[in-house]
C-alpha cells in the first residue's frame, strides 16, 4: 500500500525523555557512557550487590546463573555458557547489567559501578589482569573468547530443502518400531493438584 499520511498523533519526545529511556549499547560501543572501574572496586560492589545469587567468584549459587567459567565447553555434552565462555560482545554485559540488574532492584547502579562489575566478571573469567581499568576508552581492549562463535540462522540452507516434499505414508521404517525412552522413568513431571480424577 502507499505510504499513509500522518495523522498528527502523539507528541515530539523531549531530549531528556529520550536520554532517560534510550540506554541501549551496541556492539561497536555506541551508547557507552563516559566512566571507568576496575576489578578490585568491582569485587566489593559484586560482593554487596550480586554475590548472594551469583556467588563470590561469579560462579553462581544453586540454580542462579553462572557468570564465570565454562571456557572451551561449548562443544561438550553439557556446555557451560557464561559471559566468558559464550557471550560474543562485552557491550551486552554493560547494557544488561546497567538496565536489568541487580535482579529485583534494577537500574540502581551508577555508570562507574557497572564498569567495575563488568571488570570483575571479566577478571573472574581470567580475561583481564587485576590492574586493568575498564572504561569507555579501554572497552575494546578486551577480547571476548566466543566473539566469532555465532552464525546467522542457516536453516534455509541446512534443513528446509531436505525436510520438504511429499512425505512417506506406508512402510516408512526399517524393522519393528520400538520404544527407546520413557518419560515415566525420569518421573520429573509435577503432580497435578486439583486435577479431576478420570
Amino acid at each position: 500500500p502507499a505510504m499513509a499520511g500522518k495523522l498528527g498523533l502523539g507528541r515530539t519526545a523531549l531530549p531528556e525523555e529520550i536520554a532517560a529511556w534510550d540506554g541501549d549499547i551496541s556492539p561497536d560501543g555506541t551508547g557507552l557512557p563516559v566512566g571507568s572501574g576496575d576489578a578490585m572496586d568491582g569485587e566489593e560492589i559484586f560482593a554487596d550487590q550480586c554475590a548472594a545469587c551469583h556467588g563470590d567468584f561469579a560462579e553462581g549459587i544453586d540454580n542462579w546463573p553462572k557468570l564465570a567459567g565454562g571456557a572451551d565447553t561449548l562443544d561438550h555434552e553439557d556446555p557451560l555458557k557464561t559471559v566468558g565462555s559464550y557471550w560474543p560482545h562485552l557491550s551486552t554485559a554493560y547494557d544488561y547489567i546497567k538496565r536489568s540488574m541487580p535482579y529485583g532492584n534494577a537500574g540502581t547502579l551508577s555508570d562507574d559501578e557497572v564498569y567495575a562489575i563488568v571488570a570483575y566478571i571479566l577478571y573472574s573469567n581470567d580475561l583481564i589482569d587485576d590492574d586493568f581499568v575498564l572504561s569507555n576508552e579501554t572497552f575494546f581492549d578486551v577480547e571476548m573468547p566466543n566473539a566469532d562463535g555465532f552464525i546467522i540462522d542457516d536453516r534455509a540452507e541446512t534443513e528446509y530443502a531436505q525436510w520438504s516434499g511429499e512425505p512417506c505414508m506406508e512402510n516408512c521404517k526399517e524393522g519393528e518400531v520400538k520404544v527407546t525412552m520413557r518419560a515415566m522413568v525420569l518421573d520429573v513431571t509435577p503432580e497435578e493438584e486439583g486435577a479431576s480424577e478420570a
Binding site: D24, I25, S26, P27, L74, D75, P79, K81, V83, Y86, W87, P88, H89, S91, T92, D95, Y96, S100, G149, F150, I151, I152, D153, D154, R155
Partner: peptide, 20 residues
C-alpha cells in the same frame, strides 16, 4: 543491538560449539 536476549539467550548451540 545484540542484546542479552539475542546473544546469551535465544541463540542455538550446535554440536560443534558454534551457535545460530
Amino acid at each position: 543491538v545484540e542484546s542479552r536476549e539475542e546473544t546469551s539467550k535465544y541463540t542455538d548451540t550446535l554440536e560443534d560449539g558454534t551457535s545460530r
